[in-house]
Design a protein around this nucleic acid. Sequence first.
DNA 1: CTCCGTGCAAATACTTTGCAAAGCG
DNA 2: CGCTTTGCAAAGTATTTGCACGGAG
Lengths: 131, 131
Amino acid sequence: MLQKRNFSAKREAIYNAISLTKVHPSVEWIYHKLKPEIPDLSLGTVYRNLNVLREMGLVKSVGVVDGQERFDADMSQHSHFICTKCFCVIDVRLGNDFFSDSIYDCISDECGVYIQYHNLTFYGVCGSCPK
Amino acid sequence: MLQKRNFSAKREAIYNAISLTKVHPSVEWIYHKLKPEIPDLSLGTVYRNLNVLREMGLVKSVGVVDGQERFDADMSQHSHFICTKCFCVIDVRLGNDFFSDSIYDCISDECGVYIQYHNLTFYGVCGSCPK
DNA sequence: CTCCGTGCAAATACTTTGCAAAGCG
DNA sequence: CGCTTTGCAAAGTATTTGCACGGAG
């Protein structure tokens, strides 16, 4: 039983790598993390699987941080804080009612659009960096 | 008087191009817009001036949309809606008190970070695209 | 004369893709 | 077998940079 969820071993390893860390990793991070245990892993495979996992709805993008896309396997509703010095990414949880349906509806009406989701990111300096 | 604000003529043209449109343009858009009037404009100049304008605080990034960075010369506090079909970008104005200082403070305390600004973007389908 | 801005082309950086080989059911 | 996954390298796309020239003060 090398595979769960019909994942290939490598896809599983990539998914686990994202799930088991809080760093919201980049492709490079995942690649370098797994390379020692999976010596024949290639960068293209990480890119390809990330796109597959994204389409499956198991992973989402945090956005491009310092030129590299960062990923998150926590699909629950939450926001992020990104440090503009060290580029670490930290989860931020606001009340679930912070963005109520009524806000979506209100904006939708006003702008004539259909809103499916949103992305809220805070920027600043983290606790480990000199201000 | 070819220059205002100590801008070179090209920097001025680039800044005006962003200011005078609502499309939140990409580098390519600006380049193709200005190329007819300024035949010896080069793409590198657009990139360089956008970074200068950004450092000057006259322009800010809307984020990367469909692989290209988009810019906004409206520096007032507002959010954006991005259509995931045609990639148009529309301004969204919430009440100014939507993000009060107290929320910044609250998150800052909770996460041990110093928040400087935030970015709120809504995604979905615009009125011109089929749902 | 000096500085800033610029065209041009080369260089980067990140990501995607074509293809043949390998893996799995 | 037939479909999926993969390594590898090449290609693609967006952006940055080195350099020498050119114009403004």
